[in-house]
Design a binder for these strands. Structure first.
Length: 417
RNA sequence: CGGGGCGUGGUGUAACGGCUAACAUUCUUGAUUUGGGAUCAAGCGACUCCGGGUUCGAAUCCCGGCGCCCCGACCA
């Protein structure tokens, strides 16, 4: 992509109404736009990052049998009433509205009930199970206080997968598989080392515990008790003797840490399926409630988390797996040959499907470097009088700041590290 | 939902109740520059969040609304 055509602009200063580092940097670099408190729009660069995260998650969900769908955002009141979760006393963050004919509808904050209701049309026999539909969708939550940039929005993008199994044993197996898959996802997003499976509250689902994936960062809103050695953690909200015993760990082994919840998985059992009447007929001919589970990952929150975890004083530092572009090609004003060469190089990179943002703007070097640092693209390739003379290209890795001289062939091969 | 702070060009700030609301940046034009937001010159850009009130006079004081941030509570 030509940077001169990119409609977004970087800015020196963040708007004063944004203090969270993640949102501040993403706004300054032109990745997102704040519409109102807790509500952000995604601009070209930001949307590319979101798409990168989505495709990693999608690949992994498909690998464990997930089938992608897209449910409606408007939800019927009746479905939620059956599980007692329409009442504002029970769920206080509903966005509700009315149809012209006064029928109340809700803006989905999650989809367990709608999903279970939908599956009634498709599940009747043990032969129809298991099933693992999932989706990427905006969720709406009427937070009393949204904060921390992308960490707690009123509207946010989430991946939610729902498991429909015959038995709790079958659910348990899938649950373990989901944990492994989640680990893989966070590894691929480069936050695997700082993300921990954490024992957490079961919420309102009738189970004692659920599991969260918590990524360590000072900006996080959760407090967890962590053992890095044993790779286990307990959310403060469920930190007690019972939890410690369950994990067979002593309090001394744990340290208190701040973290952000990037994923959450629940064994729902028949909490939804029973009241909604989602049942199947067993091999023996008996009717049984379908056993459910739900598995969320905060996609937009992940973008914010990655910014928080890797950013330095110059700006964002994207891991290669989610960077909007792999290469930032920057030409520095010099003799005519420089621009002509850079233009051609850009064409060659594009021709090889290497994702490149080309700073073709006629600006001074300093400004271009500042922009490039702020945007955080992993590899910066400099084309200038100097490099033309040397017959090589200058490559600066954003993460380490390391500078290397490489050949055009190396660059075009795409293997830079 | 309790508490605190704050709304001034696109952005960040300034201005005692009193001149045409100032400065920086962005943007436009030109010059000069060209490896870390350089320099110079000339411009464009604001009913000071909205509505009321006090006053000869309000960005400034008072009331109401709306919005934003922070702390806490809450948090499928």
């Amino acid at each position: 992509m030509l940077q001169s055509k990119l409609f977004t602009k970087t800015r020196r200063e963040a708007p004063k109404d944004e203090l969270a580092k993640n949102a501040e940097l993403l706004i300054r670099a032109g990745f997102i736009h704040k519409e109102m408190a807790g509500v952000y729009s995604y601009l070209p660069l930001g949307w590319r990052v979101i798409q990168k995260i989505i495709s990693i998650v999608r690949e992994e969900m498909n690998a464990i049998g997930g089938q992608e769908i897209e449910l409606s955002a408007l939800q019927e009141k009746g479905v939620w009433e059956k599980t007692g979760r329409w009442d504002d006393q029970v769920v206080d963050n509903w966005f509700k509205t009315k149809l012209k004919n006064e029928t109340e509808v809700g803006l989905a904050y999650t989809h367990e009930a709608a999903m279970a209701e939908l599956m009634k049309d498709h599940v009747s026999s043990y032969r129809d199970l298991p099933s693992y539909p999932y989706q990427f969708q905006m969720k709406f939550r009427n937070e009393l206080r949204s904060k921390s940039g992308l960490f707690r929005g009123r509207e946010f993008l989430m991946k939610d997968l729902y498991s429909f199994n015959k038995t709790t044993e079958e659910l348990d197996l899938f649950y373990e598989e989901a944990i492994k898959t989640y680990r893989k996802i966070f590894d691929r997003l480069n936050i695997g080392d700082s993300t921990y499976l954490t024992l957490a509250s079961g919420g309102a689902f009738g189970t004692d515990y659920s599991h969260e994936f918590q990524t360590l960062t000072a900006a996080g809103e959760d407090t967890i008790y962590l053992s890095k050695e044993k790779k286990m953690a307990i959310n403060k909200e469920v930190m007690n003797e019972k939890a410690l015993k369950m994990l067979k760990i002593s309090e001394k082994e744990l340290t208190e840490e701040r973290a952000v919840e990037v994923g959450n998985i629940y064994k729902l059992g028949d909490f939804y399926s029973r009241p909604l009447g989602l049942t199947y007929t067993t091999e023996e001919g008996n009717e049984q409630a379908v056993i459910m589970g739900s598995y969320g990952i905060g996609i937009s929150r992940l973008m914010g988390t990655i910014v928080e975890v890797f950013a330095d004083d110059k700006g964002i530092v994207w891991p290669e797996s989610v960077a909007p572009f792999k290469i930032h090609l920057v030409y520095l004003t010099g003799n005519d040959k420089v621009k002509a060469y850079a233009d051609k190089l850009y064409g060659d990179l594009v021709g090889r499907n290497i994702e490149v943002l080309y700073d073709d703007r006629d600006l001074r070097a300093g400004e271009k470097f500042q922009d490039s640092d702020l945007m955080g693209i992993p590899y910066r390739i400099i084309v200038s009088d100097k490099t033309l003379e040397s017959g090589r290209l200058e490559m600066k890795e954003r993460k380490s700041g390391e500078v290397k001289m490489i050949s055009e062939e190396e660059l075009l091969s795409g293997k830079l590290n």
